[in-house]
């Protein structure tokens, strides 16, 4: 009886560990699509952090009534001024973390992780 309980508990624990690992992998896993979108809405980049595979095409769309820009901190990419509904596209060909902001409203920041 006691053996069975230990066995069951062990099994349960193992399942939890496996599930947690799977969840972590899924969460970290870059977006699989070859093209993804970041929306600029209400003075925010959404999603603010995006993990993608190398070669993914990223498009920012300004959905505000106010112009914004998308500028990487080291100017790796830099959009022109995007008025309402205008878009900017960057293809992530090199791995790394790219932090960017809106040069007009610098409180607006975002991050793209290329894996």
């Amino acid at each position: 009886m006691k053996r069975k309980l230990i066995l069951a508990t062990g099994l349960l624990l193992a399942i939890v560990v496996v599930l947690a690992g799977l969840y972590r992998t899924l969460k970290r896993r870059p977006v699989q699509a070859s093209a993804v979108e970041i929306k600029i809405d209400n003075f925010n980049f959404a999603p603010a952090t995006l993990v993608v595979r190398k070669g993914t095409q990223i498009t920012w769309t300004n959905r505000d009534d106010i112009p914004h820009t998308v500028v990487e901190d080291d100017k790796t990419f830099k959009s022109k001024v995007l008025d309402t509904d205008e878009k900017f596209t960057f293809t992530a060909n090199r791995t790394g973390t790219y932090r960017y902001y809106c040069s007009i409203h610098p409180k607006m920041t975002g991050k793209v992780v290329v894996e």
Binding site: D73, I104, K107, T109
Partner: peptide, 11 residues
Amino acid sequence: VNVMNLKAGGM
């Protein structure tokens, strides 16, 4: 003039 060379995260 306080609208030039704005820094990421700043005002």
